[in-house]
Structure formats: structure tokens, C-alpha cells
Design a protein around this nucleic acid. Sequence first.
DNA 1: TAAATAGTGTCTCTCAGACACTATAAT
DNA 2: ATTATAGTGTCTGAGAGACACTATTTA
Lengths: 296, 296
Amino acid sequence: MHISANVSERAKEPPNIGVSVVILALGPSDLDGRADNLPAANTVSGTAPDIHATASRTDTASRTSNGDAVPTLRIPLVRRIRQPFLGDWALPGGDLQGGRSLEYAAEKALRSTTSLHPQYLEQLYTFGDPSRSHGGLPMVSIVYWALIGETEAKDFREAQNVRWFPVNQLPPLAFDHKDIIEYALTRVRNKIEYSDIATRLVGSEFTLSQLRNVYEAIYGRKLDAPNFRRRMLSTGMVEPTGEKLARGAHRPACLYRYVAHAGTGKSATSAKPAKSGQPGHTGDTGTAHGTTATPR
Amino acid sequence: MHISANVSERAKEPPNIGVSVVILALGPSDLDGRADNLPAANTVSGTAPDIHATASRTDTASRTSNGDAVPTLRIPLVRRIRQPFLGDWALPGGDLQGGRSLEYAAEKALRSTTSLHPQYLEQLYTFGDPSRSHGGLPMVSIVYWALIGETEAKDFREAQNVRWFPVNQLPPLAFDHKDIIEYALTRVRNKIEYSDIATRLVGSEFTLSQLRNVYEAIYGRKLDAPNFRRRMLSTGMVEPTGEKLARGAHRPACLYRYVAHAGTGKSATSAKPAKSGQPGHTGDTGTAHGTTATPR
DNA sequence: TAAATAGTGTCTCTCAGACACTATAAT
DNA sequence: ATTATAGTGTCTGAGAGACACTATTTA
């Protein structure tokens, strides 16, 4: 329901609620040869045509000085078509409807840019400072973050004004969305240590190299393969299936599957708000603030 | 502005926003002598006149089998005076006013039960499942958690229908507030590892025993004094003032002060949405359970 | 065979915890 | 001297990371 009132009246009313999503997707792992041909989203009003050209050929893998490829996470962003921050890129988002869960709203926002559902979805933070609106209506933004595997990320929807960016090559972002994305990244990198989110991004059976690639994409750096292997196996979270997978001119790799609840006694998966099914998060570091959102 | 509409209409409207606070307070450290004599939380109906009297003399220390006292955190709760959950205890909270920050609303809720301001205040989580309302209006709750030192906690306000409970002896709680409190506890215990929140609860100068007591209260268990000392000193977060504090028939203790930004290179406090002032949270622990995804 | 990835062995360093022992105050 | 707390020394074991080396496949 929209009530027409002037601005000063509006300031006294409770703010609107929006839900935004930071979508983190693994790029295709075939880093061989061809540089990524990311789809170009069209510019709004002729704003810098070259941006797209350059960006659309951005590789999702960055190469270290060593020459080894490191897979990179990508994020879909939406171009703003009105003030403030017209022409900048922003996180996908939408309104919160009464009678629906927060997660539902987050998923809906997610579907507006990708047609697939995420492997993982968790609340990140709620931003509500009045300063965030930058001239728009007062807005509280509940931000979620989602993880999407590489198979699903392949057929993302090519919507108008939607584009995917490697996390290390983000365009100018609206509001404080850059902070929010960085915050989401630290959260994921933290969470991958004590949860099973990484195994959700590979198939039910996987080689340790594949799993390691997921970690490398999230960390943004190479990991020592021998040490990674030992660490994974010592936790008891994975077990060999007995089968092997040959892929190329080299020794085939053993396949593994995820084992729930194993763990070496570390607390592993635990604390969460439980009952209501909210994901919960814990540790945390940073501070957030900002703004946000859904400023329409 | 209250708009009268029937329930089915209301369900379509955006839900209201509330802000609640989990207030964690250190109890007075005079643990000598007397064992725990906790008040029984009274049952719903009769409002039990003796409640207040008993509560104010509640001991905040629990004793291990060893006989060593472990200080315990306490939480102020508010008795509900209407349905649903009439008579149960709930977290202090209030509405979110437009034009005010979330933190402001949290502090205001905090003041409604204690007249003092917290040493630390951080957003915990936002709960918004429609099922939470249990017959009430749809409500999104942005929950904060606060830490209060023992000196300030001494003169907390004894308001009607407000009582302090040790975290390990909570009464029947309304809604999902028990989950929320447990979630807050895991967050604090996690956060104390890589932030300076513990030092905020002691004075500007403190002995390592005093600091250790804060840790023990938050962890809810005894810590090895020699190891604790080494750990604190090795981080470089504290430095000796050169003075000593004599308190009792034993060797006096050296005084220390907190040193900002020291650290042994551990990441310590870091990632946060930066720009503005919200506290942010990071790591996290739990797993969020399943979650995942978009089941619809 | 060469190339490339899979996988093992081993060494070092750091850190948490257990715990024996020493130090210094009041009574 | 006794008692209670402050503080030191030292040993152990777990885990992260560096890195040399072996294994197995295709071309």
C-alpha cells in the first residue's frame, strides 16, 4: 500500500523493508584456452560503451605470476536505471512481502537475475542507517548471500541490465554495495572452514582436485594440493567411493563423496538460530553499515 | 500510524519491524561464599511478588565440582503481559522509527531495562519468518546483542516485569527467543577470540586475573591461568603499566592496559562493511543448517 | 619417452593445553 | 609458617604449510 505523504511526514513512518542478495558463482572450470565470453549487458543510456566490451571478455580466472590459473568467483549485478547512482551497478533486490519469509524474498530477488536456485543461501546482515537512502525513501535492507555451483551458473539468464563480474574486477557500485560484497566474501571465506558449503558446489562424487578448485575460487589463491588432501581427509568429512576418474593425459584421480557429521571432534557445524530455520551466522568480524539498499 | 484492516488484508502488507536486544552482563565478581540460590521463575498466571526480591540477590557464579567459582553472564528479560506467550519471558525490544538508525533503536530498547549504555553493541541477526508471530502481527525482528561490564551492571534498573537471569538458568521464553539467546552466546564466544570486546569489560587498567574472569564468564568455564597469561601477552594486545594491584593476602598482580592494533599478525579484527559504523559480524560458526535453497 | 596431474613422506613452526614449580603479598 | 594468588618453565600433541619425491595415465 502506498500512502502519499510528503517527505517530512514519511520520515516519521517506519521504513520500508527490502531484501538484496550477493550471489557468488563459480565460473566454468575449463580455464583452458578461451577467455571467458561473458555476455554483455546493455548499457543504459550510452554510458561508456567500452566498459562492456572490456568486461565481457574478462577472464574468470586470474593467473598468478607463476602462470597457474586460479578460478575466480563471479557476481551478477543489476544496472540502476534511476537516481541515485543512475548507471552504476547494484545488488539484485526486491521488496519484502508480508506473509513470506525473508529467505523467500531473497530467492525471488535471486531469480530475477539467474533462473537457477542456489546451493546455499544465508543471511548476511541488515542495513538500516537513514543515511543510506541517499535521497530515496528510508529503507532497511536485509542482505543475503548465495552460492551457486559452476554447472548451474552456466545457463544463467541473460536479462537486460544484468551482468556478471569477477569479484576482483567489480564496476562502480551504487550505495555501499562494494562494502557489502567484500563483507560477504570474508564471510564465505570464513565459513568454508567449518561448514560443508564447499562440497555443495561439486557433484555428489568429486575428486579432491575439483574440491580444491572450489576452495581456490573462494579464497582467490592457489592451495598446496598435498596439504589440502590431508586436511580434507583428516576431517573425515569426505570418504573415497572406490572409483576413479580419468580426465586427461595423467594419472586418474580417486572419487570421493561427502560424509555428513563426521569431523574430528571439532565443533564443525553447529550454532544457528535453530528452530525457525534461519541460517545463522556466527563469528564475524566486521562491521557493517552502511546502507543500502534497495533504493528505488 | 495504525491502519485498521482485517487479518487477511494485513498479511499482504509489509510486516512491521521491531528491534530486540540480547543483553549480556557480567555479574558482580564477589563470588565468595554463598552458593547459587536461584529464584524459581514463576509460572505464568500469578505475578509472584517475591520475584523481584529473590532476583536481586541472585548469585551470578556457578560452582564446578572442583569448588572453583566460575562467573556467569546474566541477561535481563521482560515478562510478557499479553498474548501470545503471556507470562513468559522475552527479550527487550521496541519498534523501529523511521529516520533513526537500527543501533539507535537497539540502544533505546536496552535503556528500557537498564539505565546504562553498553560497552559493545552489535547486530546479531534478523528474524522474519511469518511463523514466528504465533497469531500476532507479522513481524521482522532485527536482533542486536550487547555487552555490559560488571560495574555498570550493578545499578541496573529494577523495573516492573524485568528480571535478570543467569544464562545457564533461563526461564520459559516467548517465541524463539531461547534460540536467539543461544545464538548470541555462540557469537560472543566466537568473537571474543579475535576482537577486543573482553578488554572493554574491565577498566582501562586491569590485572590479567580480572581479564581472565571476563573470559571465564563468557565461556562459562575455568581457564588455565598460566596459559591464559601467555596467550594474552603473546598477542601484544595488552602491555604492562608498571604498576601493581594488591588485593588480599597474596602476591599483588601487575596491571595492564589494552593496546590497539597490536596483534601477532593474526587477522584479528578486520573485515567489515567498513564505511559506516555498524559493528558487523563475521565469522560465524554455525552452520546454518541446511538451508539452502529455494525449495519452491 | 615426455608431460601432466595424483598422491606420499617428511620436516618445521606455531600454538593450545597440562602441569610442576617459583614468587610475593597478608595474616 | 600458612595460605592464597601471581607468575615462570617446560613438555606434549595437533595442525598448517613448504617441499622433495613417487605413481599413473595419455600422447
